[in-house]
Amino acid sequence: MTEPVNYTDVQPGTRLPTRVFTVGRADLVRYAGASLDFNTIHWSERAARDAGLPNVIAHGALTMALALRALTDWAGDPAAVRDYRARFSKPVVVPDDGEPARVQVEAVVAEKLDSPRVRVSVTATCGADKVLVMPRVLVALKE
């Protein structure tokens, strides 16, 4: 863990470290078990194709959890994340070809609010697809 960032250290435009997370089939199975979300489109290729998807896809909530890691590691305390809304704009497709999907998370301070809160804008991409956007994450930093 790196040192948590302070409110006084950031400005609008401050970029958080870019993060890349890998998501393979085993990760989806593990997440299904932990989250009790056993929707078949997250582990059965047949079910995914029957639902009109190109292949098995990751849980939106898993992608969201990974995107939030970029923020919680930066802020130091996960409880610093106070409010966010995520839009799952495209699926993270996870074929069983031995190559995990790569989810890249970019985040930037969009606005400084009353101390110690800042608004951070987060985007997650997988290949050429924007898979998740969180334009307004409120984070309370150390003062």
Binding site: H59, G60, K90
Partner: peptide
Amino acid sequence: TTTFVARADEAGDERTAGGRP
């Protein structure tokens, strides 16, 4: 707040993850 969408048949690019069993 959670938003679920039941896609009409042959929906376009907006399909996404996280449905329920």
